[in-house]
Design a protein around this nucleic acid. Structure first.
Length: 676
RNA sequence: GCGUUCAUAGCUCAGUUGGAUAGAGCAACAGCCUUCUAAGCUGUGGGUCGCAGGUUCGAAUCCUGCUGGACGCACCA
């Protein structure tokens, strides 16, 4: 919060104390302060109708008058920072001293040394963010991009606000679908193993599409797939220890900063057959298709190949995880969950299957199938309890599409029911401990569908092709630029002096490649983060490939422009620490500088709102507005060629804009370019 | 049928959680590059906030009904 708002907060507290003898907190007081829709109304306003809750009575206009009459004689208290107070209808409007305001904000950003807006809560929360979660053996499509970028962005936002984010990728690596995949692999004898090694995920996807088609005509497919899945699950859970035992040991691995870094291995599931034969060929097909151990190895191989592929893609768009988990990991304990829930009466048997009736949800929650195999709901229960044991989280966010809203309301409802009935569970002290405190800490961050593609029909758009398309468009745009095409290609590379030391053509192409790739990736990612999560996205190439207006490249471009200008201006002597920044309202550009400073001052609010609502798009809109204000300024006023004491404060203003924009681009996973 | 969710300019979307005159960007049209990057800037046109009621000082926002779309609803994930 800036000092101006702080001043108002205490001013308003004072009036409520004086008039109604009520003490309100800073937070309450701050909530009463709004930003008027138009700067001509003032910079902050107090809406009198909010005061009704503190006992002020009468028409809003009269309350406003009463407040105003109190403020006016006490104006000296805030005179240092404010120019005037006005009454307008139901509002009391405050006008800041614009010169002081602009100077304060610019200096505030500059002094923060790149950390402007970073939060430092008294008690940082431990927040698990479960996102991306692709299904193995399927290509990474644009559908997964949304969860991936929303989750990654939220992780960064929580971290920047001072909390601990734990990023988990929960792979869809289990379930009947893998029975189907193994069935496909074993039924179709025409797999080219050398091709398979080259692009395994594509081949696996082909199998997936093919078996789905055959399933329609051939009823034995489903039968075989179910059996194979059962074999797989039985093989994995021929175990060794109970969930209770597992929970007893797991929190000992909890380390200091709350992060448990796991690699992409399958956790427990891996150890079941670590030395397995995973080299595929035509000869050992009998082993893979005919024995439980072979099938397990086959599944494990599919899993590994998929993860390798995912990691390559994540790296290319700057996504990383603290842990890779998988459903298979939890499958081992799904039987324990089933028994606990049944024994305690939380679950019941219906039509041979195990179900839980959850308060407020009509559809029964299915825990286990009538053939005894697990369903993903039961695996999610296991996972949540394991994570509580392991991380002791304050909050766990699932970034999953809104089509799974029912699933999550069932999952959350089950933890509510567990909490209520915890004493009915016999033994299992560890389980009771962890399971009872989960209720209320789970959040489903849902998002709308991308309309226009589907895996079943086989017309899935692969993420890599999608980015490639954007990259090519960016390259075309880049090559249209006269400066770059005409002569100075090296202008793209800040490390090379223009005109000197010309690099060979190949390197120039590399520059173009990397620049256009960053623009393409930026366009694609920003496109997913600029609208509110819950709205469905009508997929359109025209939209994604437009780099003008409200787009990622527009923001990247704005930063590049500032970079260029700043380097031409040269860094002032004061080097940026505690600079002497002062603006004069007599300068022609002052009003625009003020508007920029005002927008910068809103950054903290935008950040908070983005976190509270788990909504990165709040930052997207904010950044677009800031960039737009800057571009208007840039267009209308020239800096180069002016006197030093005119340029210097503006230099810091430019740097402040750049700092905030770069921060937001980072938070939104949009690459930042030096030049473009 | 039940449930969830959405409907704002031709198109894509904002709209400070019930507040001041409903805003941007695309697209269309008209302008601005010998001067800090034109992926930019300026201007014009474009609205019964799906429809009908209700709640109150005040509704795009809240409640009810209707219309239309999306998604989900027992052994997939």
């Amino acid at each position: 919060m800036d000092i101006f708002k702080k001043k108002l907060v205490s001013f308003i507290k004072a009036v409520i104390k004086e008039k109604k003898n009520i003490d309100i907190s800073d937070e309450e007081s701050e909530k009463l302060i709004k930003n008027p829709p138009d700067v001509s109304f003032g910079d902050y306003s107090l809406a009198s109708y909010y005061l009704a809750r503190y006992g002020f009575k009468g028409k809003p206009e009269d309350i406003a008058e009463e407040i105003f009459n109190f403020f006016a004689p006490n104006f000296a208290d805030i005179e240092e920072l404010f120019d005037k107070i006005e009454i307008k209808g139901a509002y009391v409007n405050f006008f800041v001293n614009k010169e002081k305001f602009a100077s304060f904000v610019v200096r505030d950003v500059t002094d923060s040394g790149g950390d402007y807006g970073r939060g430092a809560p008294q008690k940082p929360l431990k927040v698990i963010i479960d996102f991306s979660s692709p299904n193995i053996a399927k290509p990474f499509g644009v559908g997964h991009l949304r969860s991936t970028v929303i989750g990654m962005s939220l992780s960064k936002i929580y971290e920047f606000c001072g909390h601990n984010a734990i990023k988990i990728n929960y792979l869809g690596d289990f379930g009947t679908q893998f029975g189907k995949l193994i069935t496909a692999f074993c039924r179709y004898g025409d797999i080219d193993f050398s091709e398979f090694e080259k692009d395994p995920v594509k081949i696996l996807y082909g199998l997936y599409v093919r078996i789905h088609k055959d399933e329609q005509a051939d009823a034995t497919v489903e039968e075989e797939a179910k059996n194979r899945f059962k074999t797989l699950e039985d093989f994995i859970s021929v175990n060794k220890r109970s969930f209770e035992e597992y929970l007893g040991g797991v929190n000992s691995v909890n380390n200091i900063n709350g992060k448990n870094i796991e690699n992409g291995s399958g956790g427990e599931a891996d150890s079941a057959c670590a030395s397995g034969n995973t080299k595929l060929s035509g000869e050992n097909k009998n082993f893979f298709c005919g024995t439980p151990e072979g099938q397990y190895n086959l599944w494990k191989l599919f899993r590994k190949l998929s993860i390798d592929e995912f990691k390559r893609i994540y790296e290319s768009i700057g996504i990383e995880f603290d842990a890779y988990e998988g459903e298979a990991y939890s499958a081992e304990f799904s039987k324990d969950i089933k028994e606990i829930l049944l024994e305690s009466g939380i679950a019941e048997i219906s039509e041979g299957a195990v179900i839980v009736n959850v308060k407020g949800v009509k559809a029964p929650a299915l825990i286990a199938k009538s053939d005894g195999t697990s369903l993903y709901l039961s695996r999610d229960i296991v996972t949540a309890v394991s994570r509580m044991a392991k991380y002791n989280f304050d909050k766990m966010i699932y970034v999953v599409g809104s089509e799974q809203a029912l699933h999550f309301s069932q999952l959350f409802g089950i933890f509510g029911k567990l909490k209520e009935n915890i004493q009915k569970i016999k033994d299992n002290p560890n389980f009771k401990n962890y399971a009872s405190i989960i209720d209320g800490r789970l959040v489903h961050v849902k998002f709308g569908r991308i309309i226009g593609m589907s895996t079943r029909k086989g017309n899935l758009v692969f993420l890599e092709d999608y980015i490639e398309e954007a990259r090519i468009k960016a390259k075309e745009k880049l090559e249209e630029r006269p400066k770059i095409l005409g002569g100075d290609l090296n202008a793209l590379n800040p490390d090379i002096e223009p005109g000197v030391n010309k690099e060979p053509a190949e390197s120039e192409n590399e520059q173009i490649y990397s620049t256009s790739l960053k623009v393409g990736v930026g366009a694609v990612i920003f496109n997913d983060l600029k609208t509110r999560r819950t709205t469905d996205v009508n997929f359109s190439w025209d939209n994604v490939l437009s780099f003008e207006g409200q787009t990622g490249p527009y923001l990247q471009y704005t930063v590049s422009r500032i970079n260029s200008l700043v380097s031409k201006l040269g860094v002032p002597d004061s080097k940026g620490k505690n600079p002497d920044v002062a603006f004069s309202k007599n300068d022609a550009d002052f009003n625009d500088i003020f508007l920029i400073a005002r927008q910068i001052a809103f950054f903290g609010d935008a950040l908070n709102e983005a976190m509270e609502q788990n909504e990165p798009s709040v930052l997207s809109s904010y950044a677009l507005e800031l960039a737009s204000l800057f571009n208007k300024y840039y267009q209308n006023y020239r800096l180069i060629g002016n006197a030093k004491d005119y340029v210097e404060p503006r230099f810091f203003m430019l740097s402040a804009v750049r700092m905030v924009l770069i921060r937001i681009l980072n938070l939104l996973c949009v690459p930042v370019l030096e030049r473009m």
